[in-house]
Simulated assay, not measured.
Amino acid sequence: MLTKDVTQEIEAAIEQIHALGKEPTVALVKSRISTGVPMPALITAIRSWKNAKRIPKVEVAAQQEPSDRLTELENKVATLTARIEQLEALLGEKA
């Protein structure tokens, strides 16, 4: 499974919130990041930042682009269609 490192994105959001004079919370951090990060990972990152001013590495599963998935499905359909046509041709020869 492919993963994406979002540590820098989370750290930037926390620093941005802190620079505004606010206390970083899960809701504030989550609203400032573009990647979906599980709540337990955000809680751990915020706690670590509050205690040591550092964030542990946070990785999430990388999402495959929809266009890539569509292309992949189209290729599978084309391959399966060709195989069906070959099988029908073989069955037609035997009949």
Rank of each mutant, 00 (worst) to 15 (best):
I17L: 07
T7C: 03
H18N: 11
K50V: 03
T79Q: 14
A78K: 08
I84Q: 12
A95E: 14
R54D: 07
I17K: 04
E72T: 07
K53Q: 14
E11K: 05
I14V: 06
I33R: 09
L42P: 05
S67Q: 13
A82Y: 03
Q63D: 13
A95T: 13
I55W: 02
T3Y: 13
I14L: 05
W49T: 01
L28W: 09
E59S: 01
M39R: 14
Q8W: 11
K4Y: 09
Q8P: 08
W49N: 01
E15Q: 15
E85C: 02
V6F: 03
S34L: 02
G92Y: 11
V60W: 05
E23D: 12
V37R: 00
A62K: 11
V26G: 02
P56F: 01
A12N: 02
T71Q: 15
L2W: 12
P56L: 00
T7L: 01
E72K: 04
I14K: 01
S31R: 04
Q63G: 12
T25H: 07
I33M: 04
E23N: 11
M39K: 13
L80A: 06
T3V: 12
I43P: 06
Q63A: 15
G36R: 06
Q64T: 15
K30G: 04
N51K: 10
V58D: 01
D5A: 03
L73R: 04
N75M: 12
P24T: 06
K50F: 03
I43A: 13
K4A: 14
K76W: 06
A78W: 07
A95I: 13
L87H: 09
K76G: 08
K30I: 07
Q86G: 08
I33T: 05
A52K: 09
T79E: 15
K53I: 13
E15S: 12
K94M: 13
K94Y: 10
M39N: 11
V37S: 01
A62W: 05
P66I: 00
M39W: 09
A12W: 00
